[in-house]
Amino acid sequence: MSTLSLLMLFSGIATIALIACYLDAKFQWRLNDWMNGRCDNPFISSETKTLKACIQEKDEKIDALTQRIETLEAIVTEPAYELNKKINAL
């Protein structure tokens, strides 16, 4: 093989890989997984829907925990809480 044909072959493979990465990021088609033998059909979006649901559930938990922390901070920083702590220490 000549140098030109090798260069064209490698650039073609790199172009296909970059396009697959772009389509994976844009549409979640899982083409890279399909090319590496990790999935049967790259266009089935059942796993992406479950992943999105898990991420949404995790975000909701984080929001709930953030609200609880804010409430606890408000309770602890109240002057009445410090007074009650001093009274209990006596």
Rank of each mutant, 00 (worst) to 15 (best):
W34N: 01
D59T: 10
L23V: 08
G37M: 02
T50M: 12
D33T: 01
Q28T: 05
S46V: 06
A64Q: 11
D59I: 08
R38Q: 09
I62H: 04
T66L: 09
I19P: 00
C54I: 08
C39W: 01
A80E: 12
N36C: 08
I62D: 05
N36W: 11
I19A: 15
A25P: 00
Y22C: 04
T50C: 02
E78W: 08
A74N: 11
N41F: 05
A64S: 11
I69P: 00
W34F: 15
I44E: 11
I75R: 08
R30S: 13
L31Y: 01
P42E: 03
L65A: 05
K26F: 10
I16Q: 07
E82D: 11
A20D: 06
F27T: 03
W34Q: 01
C54W: 10
A74G: 03
L51P: 00
K52I: 07
I55T: 07
T50S: 14
I19C: 07
D63K: 14
G37Y: 03
L23K: 03
K61M: 13
Q56N: 12
E78S: 15
T77G: 00
L23Q: 04
K52R: 15
N41R: 10
C54A: 14
Q67S: 12
V76K: 07
D63F: 09
I75D: 05
E82Q: 13
L51D: 12
K85G: 00
N36S: 13
